[in-house]
Design a protein around this nucleic acid. Structure first.
Ligand SMILES: [Zn+2]
Ligand SMILES: [Zn+2]
Ligand SMILES: [Zn+2]
Ligand SMILES: [Zn+2]
Lengths: 154, 154
DNA sequence: TTCACGATGAGAATCGTTGTCAAATGCGAT
DNA sequence: ATCGCATTTGACAACGATTCTCATCGTGAA
């Protein structure tokens, strides 16, 4: 199915619930999490329906979608405050950062190519101060499982 | 517990083959593709081994890894030329772009937080000129389903 | 060479996501 | 309100990428 502008999407309680659940959080949430949230709040919505709607909203530009490091698709309400992360690839520490420079650049370069309604995602990864030090003294900590992503405001 | 001296990764023919296959291409390749390439060139390497090595190389910062739009992890040799894309979310047209501004910003902001060996990925999406026009006229214009992602140099 | 342990491979197990299709529902016309 | 019909939903099967298991192999060091 080609997504077109004139396409009429019928309003349903499920879609409304999903949209509400999404905007209730400022963080990126996966389809499964949204589904769980709804179930938890007593709203029964099929898992497939959650997937379908989130995807539709994403293609229509109503929500932002990125892939979490483990490959899951995660969605976030478009209106929430926009920022990026610098993640340590060794311990998972994440720092939130914002920057007008990139925002403007993205907008400008996209416009220069005639693109409209542009959105973007940017992720940075490296070694945090602590892990940088560790490696210097040849002490590498390799976790068996993925480290929990701790977020620290920048 | 947390010990070990510098990374003691033993050299094996499989690892060498994987590294070679990776640097042979300037594009991002998935684990499955690398595996197929090797098989095609007569080099038998277990799929799990390909996954394990690509992941290890990624965590060690030897290769770049991003997620393709459908969620597959794709790897690329670190040395290849760095650039970004502006993708049309309606027809899939992709334009390659480069920009010192972002590169410097990313480096600077990461350094400001004490991070080292920083790498980044950035993706922009919007509506290309053609699709922007289509949407303006309320007329529904038929467009090939799920257009292949054509790349155009910026 | 021998030993200890990391690395590999084949296949099973996970698990997020998509496909199927009958039943339920929104909407415009009657 | 009611009918007709296309869209949407939901339960569940099907998929496919990635991970896990574990017996066996290969490498580095003594
Ligand atoms: Zn760290
Ligand atoms: Zn931004
Ligand atoms: Zn387009
Ligand atoms: Zn860049």
């Amino acid at each position: 199915m080609t997504d077109q502008a004139g396409t009429e999407r019928r309003p349903t309680r499920q879609r409304a619930a999903i949209a509400r659940a999404l905007s209730a959080s400022a963080e990126f949430r996966s389809a499964q999490e949204i589904h769980a949230d709804l179930a938890g709040s007593g709203t029964r919505v099929g898992l497939a329906t959650v997937y379908r709607n989130l995807q539709a909203m994403a293609t229509d530009g109503e929500v932002d979608v990125i892939r979490s490091p483990d490959g899951e698709a995660v969605y976030r309400s478009c209106s929430t405050d926009h920022h990026h992360h610098v993640v340590c690839r060794s311990c998972g520490l994440a720092v939130e950062v914002t920057g007008d420079a990139v925002e403007r650049w993205a907008e400008a370069v996209a416009a220069a190519h005639g693109f409209t309604q542009v959105r973007h995602t940017m992720e940075m990864e490296g070694l945090c101060p602590a892990c940088t030090a560790s490696r210097h003294r040849s002490k590498v900590v390799r976790r068996p499982t993925q480290a929990p992503r701790r977020v620290v405001d920048g």
